[in-house]
Amino acid sequence: MKNTTRSQFNAYAAQIAALNSVDDATVKFAVEPSIEQKMEDRIQESADFLKDINILPVDEMSGEKVGIGIDSPIASRTNTVDNDRSPRAVGDMTGKTYEAKKTDFDTYITYKQMDIWAKFPDFQARLRNKVIEQIARDRLMIGFNGTSAAAETDIDTYPMLQDVNIGWLQHIRADASERVLDGIKVGAGGDYENMDAAVFDATNELLDPWYREDSELVAITGRSLLADKYLGLINANDAPTEKNALRTLMANKTLGNLPGLGVPFFPTRSLLITKRSNLSIYWQSGSRRRQIMDNPKRDRVEDFNSVNEAYVVEDFGACAFLDNILLPDGEGGWA
């Protein structure tokens, strides 16, 4: 890197060391608790979907789920002549547990790229934000695609980070299979004539009764599946008045009377009905480790980050999952 860039980088490394009360940021260190929380806040703010779910610090690497943001009925009456009043737990307090897994979020920036960025006054913020934004993207990938936590991950075989951690959808498949409709056919002659009918039926059949009318329910899916529903409407409405009405409809997409939410990295042929507050990421306080290394052998600066984290569904009763949805293939079959 250029000498001017070197000066900027040294100042950046010194600032990180000072913030974390360590002598040298190029030696592996535990991130200071206040900095750890600020980093988590920035990660959450870096992706729209993450802003709406719970990202919570927990003390233990494993334990019982927190159950935050989940409501279940508590109203009752007891004949106290014969029985004691018995309070009820709020949320899914059925002994379900979480287990945080160490996850590495390691990145690098080439000298060439750093030389370009060094011209800007926000050089340090650019370096920081590059890491933050990728962690946010990776968390979405893992949450929607993760199926296992391998000792040695393989991004070539699992490009959607399927082997980094167990995500929300896999937890539903494994621990609440009664909430899953797998391989349904949606279209003329199928199990459901359209996606609206499938979502409406799943909401009323798979969710616990007290969640079915919850105003916070959304239908989360991949953007392509949500777009498929409206593609025919776009093609069929050419008149100016129809186009104006369609703009309003497209701005308020719904599936089965629920708000439709297209989220990056969600499986293209799946759909999850739940409350956003039902999904959580737990990170273990004090588990974040970091090291910044100048690697001249590769002409780059490497930033090693790790934290113990778990992807948690707070209450399976607030979930209905349509997995591996089949659509007409145009040749009389389903795909």
Rank of each mutant, 00 (worst) to 15 (best):
A251Q: 10
G232A: 07
S270G: 05
E205C: 06
Y211G: 02
G260S: 05
A239W: 09
N257Y: 00
L271M: 01
L217D: 02
K229I: 11
A227E: 14
D214W: 01
D191K: 05
D182I: 07
R179D: 09
L206C: 09
N204G: 14
T254C: 05
D201W: 09
D214M: 02
R212C: 04
P259A: 00
A202R: 08
E205R: 15
L279A: 01
Q170C: 13
D182Q: 10
E242Q: 12
G260K: 05
D238G: 04
G190H: 09
G167P: 12
I166C: 14
A174I: 08
S215L: 05
T254Y: 01
D208S: 04
M160D: 12
I166N: 11
M160R: 13
D214L: 00
A239N: 03
S177M: 08
K243H: 02
H171Q: 13
K229T: 07
K229A: 11
D175N: 15
R173M: 10
R269L: 14
L231W: 13
F265L: 05
E242I: 13
T221Q: 07
M195K: 03
G260E: 10
P209F: 03
R173F: 08
Q162M: 08
G189L: 14
N194F: 09
N257C: 00
S270D: 12
L249E: 13
L206T: 03
S224W: 07
L231P: 02
G232M: 13
